[in-house]
Design a protein around this nucleic acid. Structure first.
Length: 558
DNA sequence: TTAGGGTTAG
């Protein structure tokens, strides 16, 4: 039965137009709207601005898809002389569903046809610029608000404050904000968002404190602002003071505790959280994954299912990461088949496939990982990195290198992460020449600045292959102080190749950097022991005891 | 005539 029949509304051309707005307001799906559209055409109402405005607005509230974009444009294009309402409805549609290009071309078309933009035109246009961080275009539009006399409007002002703040132009945001004739909670909140965005948490708090009226939005932005800059104490204080906390407020705080590694507090707050949604479950689960508690992440997933919360792709990616950490092939198989049963999810999403590839590779099912990777209709940088990483941990260095070049040939530009993966693979497989060439191309061809991790990879690569002096020179040529990882890699190499003198020097630098890390002392004592320097062994061991350093007992999974 | 606006989170 169609919507028309269900509503028991006549569809004859003589019936009043009022029935169509009523029908449009009842539409929940694209299919419903298509039925109404048929009615509009049948009644010859395609030129009625009122109806078309309502129709495009209804399309705007549907979930985004390529079908709705072409549909909205097609409906609009049939109107011979659209008025400002129709234009504004289409602009709003584009600001939410499609690219800045669409919005701008609609705007240009309307001004060319002498349709004068009004105070409703600019907020949506500014929002489109904001989404793309199109600063110069936004500035131009700001100028046009003045030209068309809309700059004193509350909504235009608020959208500009938001726009400048999000683009990092905080001075411009403040200027617009200070010049506003009238402000409401949204204008104030946008100002707070701007300061949080540029990292000026002090000024953000000042504006927040000055706000005449705070909303749940403004409280939540301030809490997540403190969380973002690691000030958990202030965030928690605000959460306690907040009158009507919602799930977002709690989730921001849970996120903060999880990032700080305080999973006990995160869990505690999660228990107190009202109306927990999939985002709050996800925040806690990600915390468990990132803090090396994969078993708790899996347990939480099972708990979530008993609460009948539908997992989304973030939850499943977390579940797969947890599974990768556990490394159980049995669990991986179950999770793999579970994920594949989730028909509501887009399994072609690159990051979902990347997680599946990663999980299978880390749990020892390289066959399945390869199949998933090769079956992808389109491979992106992330999926390539997952596959290369998988091959790398299985020691297939040569395959990683050829995959890396295949990735480039497919038109992807390697980033810092991709180079970390490839350099690690070269190091593991002893591919010294390839590694050096790649490190060189990273700097000279791709203009990337190597991070301390990249240097650590190279030091490891050179060190393992016995080129200790080269590794040492590279270490000293680093523009920033090498971190413990790079020094530690060289110390290992010294042990491997029995270089006592270099080992001594590197160890002393490491002792300064991490005086309480027992493994550095043990490594140095091993280096001495290998060359029968037992007195030195004694001195180092003694130092461990004197400094009260706790040795972590060795353990094995085997 | 009727119609339309801006701010939060993995």
């Amino acid at each position: 039965m169609t919507l028309i029949n269900r509503c028991n509304l006549k569809s004859s051309p003589s019936s009043s137009n009022l029935s169509i707005p009523r029908l449009i307001s009842l539409c929940k799906t694209l299919r419903n709207l298509e039925q109404i559209h048929t009615q509009i055409i049948r009644r010859g109402s395609e030129q009625e601005h009122y109806l078309i405005t309502l129709f495009i607005s209804a399309l705007t509230s549907l979930p985004p898809s390529t079908t709705t974009i072409s549909y909205a444009s097609a409906v609009f294009d049939r109107v011979s002389r659209p008025n400002i309402y129709v234009y504004n409805a289409l602009l709003k549609f584009h600001s939410q569903h499609s690219s800045l290009y669409h919005s701008v071309s609609v705007f240009l078309r309307m001004t060319r046809l002498n349709v004068v933009p009004d105070k409703y035109t600019f907020p949506v246009l500014v929002k489109s610029c904001c989404k793309s961080l199109a600063l110069n275009l936004g500035r131009g539009i700001h100028g046009l608000t003045v030209k068309y006399g809309c700059d004193n409007d509350l909504y235009v002002g608020s959208s500009l404050v938001d726009f400048y703040g999000k683009c990092g132009e905080i001075k411009c945001a403040r200027e617009v904000f200070d010049g506003m004739h009238e402000r409401n909670e949204v204008s104030w909140t946008s100002m707070v968002v701007g300061y949080v965005n540029v990292g000026d948490i002090v000024e953000a708090k000042k504006v927040f404190d000055e706000m005449p009226k705070r909303t749940v939005f403004s409280w939540n932005i301030m809490i997540s602002g403190f969380v973002r800059f690691g000030d958990l104490k202030s965030a928690r204080k605000l959460l306690e003071e907040m009158p009507d906390k919602n799930v977002v407020s709690f989730t921001a705080m849970i996120d903060g505790y999880a990032k700080a590694g305080d999973m006990a507090s995160a869990r505690d707050l999660f228990e107190q959280c009202p109306d927990r949604d999939v985002v709050s479950w996800s925040a806690l689960m990600l915390g468990y994954v990132q803090n090396g508690q994969p078993a708790n992440a899996v347990k939480l997933f099972l708990e979530m299912q008993s609460w009948n919360v539908k997992p989304d792709e973030f939850i499943l990616v977390n579940l797969m990461s947890a599974c990768s950490q556990i490394g159980s092939l049995e669990l991986a198989k179950r999770v793999d088949s579970y994920v594949n049963q989730q028909s509501s999810l887009n399994l072609q999403e690159p990051h979902v496939v990347a997680a599946l590839v990663d999980m299978n590779a880390k749990c020892g099912n390289m066959g399945r990982a390869t199949m998933l990777f090769e079956d992808m209709p389109k491979r992106d940088l992330i999926s390539y990195c997952s596959m290369m990483q998988g091959l790398s941990i299985h020691g297939c260095g040569a395959q990683v290198v050829s995959l890396f070049y295949r990735m480039i040939n497919e038109g992807h530009t390697p980033d810092g992460v991709a180079f970390t993966v490839i350099l690690t693979a070269c190091s593991r497989a002893g591919l010294v020449e390839e590694g050096c060439q790649l490190f060189d191309s990273m700097i000279n061809e791709y203009s990337l600045v190597p991070s301390t991790d990249h240097y650590a990879c190279m030091v490891d690569l050179l060190g393992r292959s016995g080129k200790l002096r080269l590794a040492y020179e590279l270490l000293n040529s680093m523009p920033v102080e090498p971190h413990a990882g790079a020094l530690g890699a060289l110390l290992w190499a010294c042990k491997l190749h029995g270089d006592v003198e270099l080992g001594k020097e590197i160890a002393s630098r490491l002792f300064e950097l991490e005086p309480q890390n027992a493994s550095n002392y043990v490594l140095l004592s091993d280096i001495y022991a290998a060359t029968d320097r037992w007195l030195d062994v004694f001195v180092v061991r003694n130092e461990i005891n004197e400094r009260g350093i706790q040795k972590i007992p060795g353990c094995s999974w085997i």
